[in-house]
């Protein structure tokens, strides 16, 4: 599974890292550290990643590949 973090729309709600701390890492400001990047979701973390994605009030995380 691959997801992309929207660089403009992440505003540091931190919901993604709360539900999937092994997938989404926050920087020192509390924003997604991978803004504008695609990231590979480690095996076994797919459900957490989806939960984090769906909880993002900005819809800043999109699914690139299942």
């Amino acid at each position: 599974m691959r997801v992309k973090i929207d660089g403009e729309h992440c505003t540091g709600h931190g919901r993604c890292a709360k539900y999937a701390p092994n997938v989404f890492i926050l920087d020192d400001d509390g924003y997604n550290a991978d803004r504008s990047n695609e990231i590979d979701v480690p095996a076994g973390e797919e459900e957490n990643a989806k939960r984090g994605m769906k909880s993002c009030p900005e819809r800043a995380i999109t699914l690139v590949a299942e």
């Binding site: 540091g12 890292a17 020192d28 400001d29 509390g30 924003y31």
Partner: peptide, 8 residues
């Protein structure tokens, strides 16, 4: 301001 209010 953000660094003062980050989760950490």
């Amino acid at each position: 301001l953000n660094p003062h209010m980050s989760p950490k």
